[in-house]
Design a protein around this nucleic acid. Structure first.
Lengths: 214, 214
DNA sequence: TCATTTAGTGAGCACTGATCACAAAAGGAA
DNA sequence: TTCCTTTTGTGATCAGTGCTCACTAAATGA
């Protein structure tokens, strides 16, 4: 039953998107009264939360399983980025759920989404932390407050990295999400929609160069 | 009436978000029958389209009016980026509407959104085109197909830039959107939410350095 | 065997977007 | 002014939604 709800939920997500996802339609698909759904899921928001967690987990599985922990950091980075893109283009609605605009008034409970949600990010940051970042003289150092925040965060995920690299690595992470979202959401117009793969390859190459990976 | 619909629509957007925006609630706010709204707007989707166009226009006005066309490109870039961030944090729901996940099944008609929607981007790209980008040897050249696409796009907005710079500039644009979205949507956790300004300043400084602006 | 918990039912409530016949305004031409 | 036409607003109505609740059937376990 639970699996059926998730399965049909994901199907509807792909077909009509999160805003139009209907609890009743899921019940119809399962051949069951709509009220039966509420025995397993408190309400529509909780169902969406389950789908978000499921999406994070699936993305992590799909993007991380082919990352060779022993490979050079640059190859790890490339594997993560291409894995994320592949999953995102194959599952645009789920990508939107995970990395698109959240629904105001309801915030996905952090305790449920933090684990799988940050797994990909930590792997990404870990790979970048193996490189080195030379801060141009014109770029000011990070503030003490930000430095300590980054040190704490790095310790939490067990990496030992220069906060200066950390700031830039975080920017690379949000930049990657922005790039993939631009392709998935078609924000760059139809002309560039067909060049998503090359744009990502370019981004990977530039990032490898910037962080002196290989 | 039209203005009233847009005004209350934007209010609701801020209060409950796009998915929960209600035509009937707008009608109540205007003291009018709900069916009266449909004399001015074909349906809910068209109303959302109007709000998107309105958001793009407002963002462009807010982000671009303080850009000094005669100033050094680096200052222009900084003005655009900080202007975008200021508007986005002040209008998170409208930012989500413009740059967040689109609603599947209904694509905002391109003819209505293209103008204001690309205005900020073209100004951004124009500023970056004033710099120079040195492609690291490890980064392969853009494919002929992508090059021609970029040349056509650049000609369309009246800038004469090296396609190699163009690819990287596009990546910077999507990266900026990703960075601002990460702050607005709180994707980096509560700890970093309070450092949005510094993260953007850092991004600006690094981008200025990468494109050799000043 | 039998009490108790769990899972499913179907009627019902309050809400939504949208349509439609109708009526009241608002204009414009004679 | 009068009269016709177009525009704007009305209220009833329809199908659909999320969700609740009293009720029943099934499973569980002492």
């Amino acid at each position: 039953m639970r699996e059926g709800i998730l399965r049909l939920g994901n199907e509807q997500l792909a077909e009509v998107g999160a805003p139009a996802l209907s609890v009743r339609e899921i019940a119809r698909g399962l051949g069951v009264a709509s009220s039966a759904i509420y025995r397993h899921v408190a309400n529509r928001d909780e169902l969406l939360t389950l789908l978000i967690v499921d999406a994070y987990g699936d993305l992590a599985k799909s993007a991380l399983d082919e990352v060779d922990q022993g490979a050079p950091a640059g190859q790890q980075l490339a594997a993560i980025a291409t894995g994320m893109r592949r999953w995102a283009t194959a599952n645009p609605a789920r990508w939107a759920l995970a990395y698109g605009s959240p629904v105001p008034g309801y915030s996905a409970p952090a305790d449920q989404t933090n684990g799988p949600g940050t797994l990909v990010m930590t792997t990404f940051l870990r790979a970048l932390s193996l490189g080195k970042f030379v801060r141009p003289a014109s770029v000011p150092k990070a503030s003490p407050s930000l430095r300590s925040e980054l040190l704490a965060g790095a310790a939490e995920i067990g990496i030992d990295a220069d906060p200066e690299l950390g700031v830039t690595a975080l920017g690379a992470w949000t930049g990657l999400i922005g790039l993939i979202s631009a392709e998935v959401f078609q924000q760059l117009g139809a002309e560039l929609a067909s060049h998503g793969e090359e744009l990502l390859e370019r981004w990977i190459a530039e990032t490898v160069a910037r962080f002196d990976l290989s």
